Amino acid sequence: MDFGLSEEQEMIVETVRAFVETEIYPHENEVERSGIVPPELGDEIRRKCIDLGFYACNFPEEVGGAGLDHVTFTLVERELGPGSLGLTVFFGRPSGILMACEGEQRERYLLPAVRGEKIDALAITEPDAGSDMRGMKCAARRDGSAGSDFVLNGTKHFISHADVADFVIVFAATGEEETPKGIKKKITAFFVDRGTPGFEILKGYDSVSHRGYHNCTLSFEDCRIPASQVLGEVHRGFDIANQWLYGTRLTVAATCVGRARRVFDLALPYAAERKQFGKPIGANQGVSFKLADMITEIDAADWLTLAAAWQVDAGRPADRQIASAKLYASEMLARVTDEAIQIFGGMGLMDDLPLARFWRDARVERIWDGTSEIQRHIISRDLLRPLGA
């Protein structure tokens, strides 16, 4: 197995890294202070990403993307990871689920998203459902008086960057079915455009993680959706989510690795330069062993994530590998940021350094896109099912 990067991959890594350092880092402190990304700044980042040829690089060339394989795209996400998420969201990576578009949906949603003309958001989570997708209460019913229209009612929350989205892909219950585990909801995915009557995007909760990257609450009240805006098949939303949304967990794993490396790159020179009792603090095993553990965990998470992406590219089942990468990388980031603050001591908690921000940002990674407990469930189920357990 070749663990090296190709010349093209090296170039991509260097290009994205330079973009983050020049276009993202200079604005981070202001976004952290205000909690807001000015619209003109978001538009500027998006335009520069398009000019660079990296917008929608996770999409195939046939629809206008760069056609990167999963390993190379994971490298892109890793290099974006150290940057403020409120800013890097404009380095466009539309949701892969848009590849399920058919007919006129491609011209209306897929292609504009790939060209950077429209931004999408995914709406799954609800106040009472959380990770239980088949337990959601947001529901769409057919309106017999209007033929094939659906009428959508309910609430979604924790919907990332819906405040800057032009349309939202909403998952809603459209029926019920009997399963071996009892009655479960049938789920359908819908496109809902900003400005649709009965659809309101509300300010979400104030989060300690990723300031400037907002979560929103979505309200649907007798919101009428034409059947032409069903993504995939009616009642098959759960299948389409399983087919396309695995990539979000790889993204979380990769960005955690990138952010951990930025943290480590702050801690290492500090340990070599900061003196206590007449010698660098890195000369003490209490610090040097922390550094050894930190880099070992970062490298382990990196290879675990790239290996999962390689599995996908090879056409092999990769649910367990992706879950392992997301689980380990997100928990690794928490440990690394905590140890870095310990190395810096009191200064690690001051606003003069970004460590406190990384520490706060790290907390959400173990929750969104499937909690650590969900990832452990996926991993253990994959191990035990072949044994009949």
Rank of each mutant, 00 (worst) to 15 (best):
M350K: 05
L353S: 10
A323N: 03
F344H: 06
P354F: 03
Y328M: 12
R357L: 01
R357Q: 08
A362M: 04
L333T: 07
R316N: 14
S324A: 11
V312H: 10
P354R: 03
R357T: 15
G346Y: 10
M332W: 08
I322V: 15
F358A: 00
D361R: 02
R316P: 01
A340S: 13
V336K: 06
D351E: 11
R320A: 15
W359Q: 11
Q321N: 07
T337V: 14
W359Y: 14
A356C: 05
T337M: 05
I322T: 09
A314R: 11
L353N: 04
G348I: 02
A362R: 02
G345P: 07
D361K: 03
L349D: 09
L333A: 09
L327Y: 09
G346R: 10
M347Q: 09
A323S: 09
D352S: 08
L333P: 04
R316Q: 15
R335P: 05
A334F: 04
P354W: 03
A340R: 03
L353M: 10
R363I: 11
G315I: 02
A309F: 05
F344P: 00
R335K: 13
A323W: 00
Y328F: 12
A323P: 00
G346K: 11
D338Q: 13
D361T: 08
I322R: 00
D361I: 07
R335D: 12
L355K: 00
R357N: 08
D319E: 15
I341V: 12
D361E: 12
D319H: 10
M347N: 05
Y328P: 00
D351I: 06
R320K: 14
W359L: 06
A362Q: 05
D352F: 02
L327I: 01
L349M: 11
D352A: 08
A362H: 01
Q311W: 08
A334D: 13
W310G: 14
R363F: 07
S330K: 04
A356E: 04
W310A: 15
T337K: 02
R335N: 13
P317F: 11
R320Q: 08
I341N: 01
Q342D: 15
G346F: 09
T337G: 08
V312C: 12
D313W: 06
R335F: 08
A314W: 02
R316M: 14
L333C: 13
Y328N: 12
K326M: 02
I322L: 05
M332E: 12
A356R: 06
A329G: 10
I322H: 01
